[in-house]
Design a protein around this nucleic acid. Structure first.
Lengths: 354, 354
DNA sequence: TTTCATCGAGACAGCGGTGTCAATAAAATC
DNA sequence: GATTTTATTGACACCGCTGTCTCGATGAAA
């Protein structure tokens, strides 16, 4: 299909010759440019379809200076689920527009080049744009390298310098606020929070939501009910241990991500607590771990793939480009509360009710 | 650095002019071809370094017909950790050789084109080669599409048709055999196995290892001690439930992957069994979940990143290409037993010992 | 009827490299 | 010293497409 009788791939010249037009006209047709008569266009298009012609990307990028490549940059690939979702979404948008998705790691530990090596990679690859995810999207060196390379970029859920580039986000604070309120309204009064690492802006915003919710109910959040975590299961376990050993232990624990919530579940097991009867646990993100945990985790669904998809769309539509930066483009997506099995009214309340 | 005084990127012409040589000579130097005098080479190289010249990938691929792009193909991105590790390894090899890694999804559900659409994508992208992981690497349609596009490819842990392409693998069967033997030698005599899905060859090979180990100890494996699983946590949970309800329940459960092993852990909790005191649980793969589980999972480390790295290396070195296919290239990597906290001698034995 | 836009389409020069082959100089051989 | 090799280097034609500019034809306006 994609080859002529001599086994050579079909080129624009073949189409032009067979259609009896110039290559420029073929170029106009395949790029949906105007200035071609309807009948000519139809004839060329038919030939394109028949011969299965696909323009050569290298040739096209050489002359048009576009690579049809979008990059996703990661620092450490630790949060596999997140990274995977980002890629799925980004790929979706790429494919729709005939782009391809290249994954790149900023400063892999073994790279001698460090940031310089990364800058080289950026220039080599000739991306039409890159999408950045937390925490990379707030890394000064990475941003500097990307800007030095003159690459348009869109960030996902950035944490600061919001005017620096277009970005996509969801309202973590509001989501956390509502989640906390839900626990409160179930009857919980001793609600603890497990925080995330400092370089993740979303963790901070989720904590703000937690704090705001308590204040909204007229309670000042107690510092010893906010435990530090690292977004890792084990850190959730440790944090929960600390919380559960408190003289007045919480009846509900809100972990800033699902992974830590799973750790809390494990700690509950160790302490002989039944979830949600003795302890309510809620997470954030709605990763597969949430669905797979036992009991299934009540959490908040973060539209990760959709955010990445939106980011790539913005890139392809030309936001992310400097000429648009006067007023930075922003897109907000919605979260969803996932009520599953790990949260319920506290025992004393349910006893009273039962 | 990478731009001249007019803001234009440095090209091979700039280097040639300033070095007082022809562009071909510069080309030879940057490609490390022979046939350039030492002094000329040094002079050109110095200029390349000074001006920060990087060859234009598009131009280069247009004339050399190489894209410097390696593709990784996934069908469904479900096993995020696996996919992530593959990418990390593949990226490492790519970067060393100046290649870039493109991720592509075969037949995303929403694509109308289906396989045809995927074939188009393959031809568009002009990969120099692709690496395939399970279960995609055994998918007939995907393989056909890739071969139709004339792309070299290397498979990771393929399941059948071993002569069809070069591949990288580890000895799942032997690893599982040893793991089972370890349980046996701890004193376990009632060892159950949770199988994986049928389209995953590694699952079958792990089961074979389990069976072979028992036979090696003179025992015929009992069919009701081999439960079906789907490589998902929940399926491990369900399988464990079945196993634990058996009139003669196992004292050790060997799950064909970590995720299911975590499900087993959850089931143990539900049944009031303490791991490893009442039940030993071992997994396979050594994913982060294994380290994060409570208790930490005894498992087998699969060198996923290294396998991907090796696959890309083979691709870049020109294996995977048809002209090498007379005798297919193969590389085997080693596994590692990770003894952690979820396996111990069975209670009756330890009682006797204690 | 003449003058201009306007539209459709083609000619042609790049884009920045690589591959082929010829040319020249230096070294080796007889 | 003449001739053959061998090591360096360059000239130049592509690779397949896009961008710019030109040109002829057609229909409307003058």
């Amino acid at each position: 299909m994609q080859q002529d009788e001599r086994g050579e791939p079909v080129t624009i010249v073949d189409i032009a010759r067979q259609a009896g037009v110039s290559i420029k006209t073929v170029s106009r047709v395949i790029n949906r440019e105007e200035g071609v008569g309807a009948s000519t266009r139809a004839r060329v298009q038919a030939l394109v379809d028949k011969l299965g012609y696909r323009p050569n990307v290298s040739a096209r990028s050489l002359s048009s200076r576009r690579s049809y490549l979008i990059g996703v940059i990661f620092m450490r690939v630790g949060a596999y689920h997140y990274v995977g979702e980002v890629q799925v979404g980004a790929m979706r948008a790429c494919r729709r527009a005939g782009y391809h998705l290249v994954v790149e790691q900023a400063q892999p530990p073994e790279a001698v080049g460090g940031v310089q090596g990364f800058a080289d990679v950026l220039r080599d690859a000739r991306f039409d744009g890159v999408v950045l995810t937390p925490p990379t999207c707030d890394d000064r060196e990475v941003l500097a390298a990307i800007e030095a390379a003159g690459l348009p970029y869109v960030r996902i859920a950035p944490h600061r310098e919001f005017e620096r580039s277009p970005y996509v986000f969801m309202d973590d604070r509001q989501a956390a606020l509502e989640q906390t309120l839900r626990l409160w309204d179930m009857g919980h009064r001793r609600i603890a929070f497990i925080d995330g690492p400092d370089d993740h802006g979303s963790a901070a915003r989720r904590r703000e939501g937690y704090v705001a919710a308590l204040r909204e109910r007229g309670v000042e959040p107690r510092p010893d009910w906010i435990a530090k975590g690292q977004f890792l299961s084990l850190s959730g376990f440790d944090a929960a241990e600390t919380l559960l050993r408190l003289p007045e232990p919480p009846t509900a624990i809100f972990a800033a991500n699902d992974e830590m919530a799973v750790g809390v579940l494990a700690a509950a097991v160790k302490h002989g607590l039944s979830v949600p009867r003795d302890l309510s646990v809620v997470g954030f993100d709605d990763t597969p771990a949430a669905e797979a945990a036992w009991p299934r985790l009540t959490t908040i669904h973060q539209p990760t793939a959709e955010m990445a998809e939106a980011a790539v769309e913005m890139l392809i539509q030309g936001f992310g480009d400097e000429r648009h930066r006067a007023r930075v483009a922003v897109r907000q997506l919605d979260y969803r509360h996932m009520s599953r099995d790990s949260a319920a009214p506290p025992r004393d309340v349910s006893d009273r009710q039962g």
